[in-house]
Structure formats: structure tokens, C-alpha cells
Amino acid sequence: DKPVLAIQVLGTVKWFNVRNGYGFINRNDTKEDVFVHQTAIKRNNPRKFLRSVGDGETVEFDVVEGEKGAEATNVTGPGGVPVKGSRYAPNR
């Protein structure tokens, strides 16, 4: 398990590439950019086929120490709701 650095952090999605399945979230508290992989998205938009977060979307997440620095995990919308997802992700 990766060491946990912070829990229930709010941030804004800087960018997310649906095809490659990753992007970055900017933390509201430290203004640090945190890597996010599609496997870290815990509550996906049920209408979306692929797990994703949308550019500019506000999300809540935990921060863990990854191999290359801070990574987001347990990604949801604020308060644990499903994320909205990327407009580029296909609908079901």
C-alpha cells in the first residue's frame, strides 16, 4: 500500500486524457498538481462507459505517495457523489 499523505482533499481537474486514462488535479489547499489515473476514480458517472473526470471539474480525493510523487486515489465528486466525467467519454 502507498503511504497516505492527505484525505478528503478538494481540487480542480487541470486536464484528463480519456484515451490514455490519466490526468492531473490541482489541489485547492496547496495548489499542487496531483497525478490521477482512471483506476483511482471510485464513483464514476453511471451514464459514462469509461471512468473519467472532466476538465475544470471539482473533485474530492485522498492523496498517496506514488512512485513519481503525489497521486490521487478514492476520487469522487464533492461529498462522495459520483464524478461528472469528461465530455469526451462515451455515454452508455
Results as ranks from 00 to 15, higher is better:
residue 1 D to V: 11
residue 4 V to L: 14
residue 4 V to I: 14
residue 9 V to I: 11
residue 10 L to W: 06
residue 11 G to S: 08
residue 16 F to I: 09
residue 16 F to L: 14
residue 17 N to Y: 14
residue 17 N to D: 10
residue 18 V to A: 14
residue 18 V to F: 08
residue 23 G to D: 08
residue 23 G to V: 12
residue 29 D to H: 15
residue 30 T to I: 13
residue 31 K to L: 13
residue 35 F to S: 06
residue 39 T to I: 08
residue 44 N to W: 12
residue 44 N to F: 09
residue 45 N to Q: 05
residue 46 P to M: 07
residue 46 P to C: 07
residue 46 P to W: 08
residue 47 R to Q: 14
residue 47 R to F: 12
residue 47 R to K: 14
residue 47 R to N: 15
residue 47 R to P: 03
residue 48 K to C: 07
residue 48 K to W: 03
residue 48 K to I: 00
residue 48 K to Y: 04
residue 49 F to R: 15
residue 49 F to Q: 14
residue 49 F to G: 12
residue 51 R to A: 10
residue 51 R to V: 06
residue 51 R to F: 05
residue 52 S to Y: 02
residue 52 S to P: 04
residue 52 S to W: 00
residue 52 S to Q: 02
residue 54 G to V: 05
residue 54 G to H: 08
residue 56 G to W: 01
residue 57 E to M: 02
residue 57 E to T: 03
residue 57 E to F: 00
residue 58 T to D: 07
residue 59 V to F: 02
residue 60 E to I: 11
residue 60 E to L: 15
residue 60 E to Y: 06
residue 62 D to G: 02
residue 62 D to T: 10
residue 62 D to K: 00
residue 62 D to Q: 03
residue 63 V to W: 00
residue 63 V to G: 01
residue 63 V to N: 00
residue 63 V to Y: 01
residue 64 V to G: 02
residue 64 V to Y: 05
residue 64 V to P: 01
residue 65 E to D: 13
residue 65 E to W: 13
residue 65 E to P: 06
residue 66 G to T: 12
residue 66 G to E: 00
residue 66 G to C: 08
residue 67 E to R: 15
residue 67 E to N: 13
residue 68 K to M: 09
residue 69 G to T: 03
residue 69 G to N: 03
residue 69 G to A: 02
residue 69 G to R: 03
residue 69 G to F: 02
residue 70 A to W: 10
residue 70 A to H: 14
residue 70 A to K: 13
residue 71 E to F: 14
residue 71 E to N: 06
residue 71 E to H: 11
residue 72 A to L: 01
residue 72 A to K: 01
residue 72 A to V: 02
residue 72 A to G: 03
residue 73 T to C: 14
residue 73 T to I: 15
residue 73 T to W: 14
residue 74 N to I: 00
residue 74 N to K: 06
residue 74 N to V: 00
residue 75 V to M: 01
residue 76 T to L: 01
residue 76 T to C: 10
residue 78 P to M: 07
residue 78 P to A: 05
residue 78 P to N: 01
residue 79 G to L: 09
residue 80 G to R: 05
residue 80 G to L: 03
residue 80 G to E: 04
residue 81 V to Y: 09
residue 81 V to G: 13
residue 82 P to F: 08
residue 82 P to G: 04
residue 82 P to S: 10
residue 82 P to T: 08
residue 83 V to T: 08
residue 83 V to W: 02
residue 86 S to I: 04
residue 86 S to N: 10
residue 86 S to V: 04
residue 86 S to D: 04
residue 86 S to C: 06
residue 87 R to S: 11
residue 87 R to T: 12
residue 87 R to H: 12
residue 87 R to Y: 10
residue 88 Y to M: 08
residue 88 Y to N: 09
residue 88 Y to L: 07
residue 89 A to S: 10
residue 89 A to L: 08
residue 89 A to V: 10
residue 90 P to Q: 10
residue 90 P to L: 09
residue 91 N to P: 12
residue 91 N to L: 12
residue 91 N to I: 11
residue 91 N to M: 13
residue 91 N to W: 13
residue 92 R to P: 07
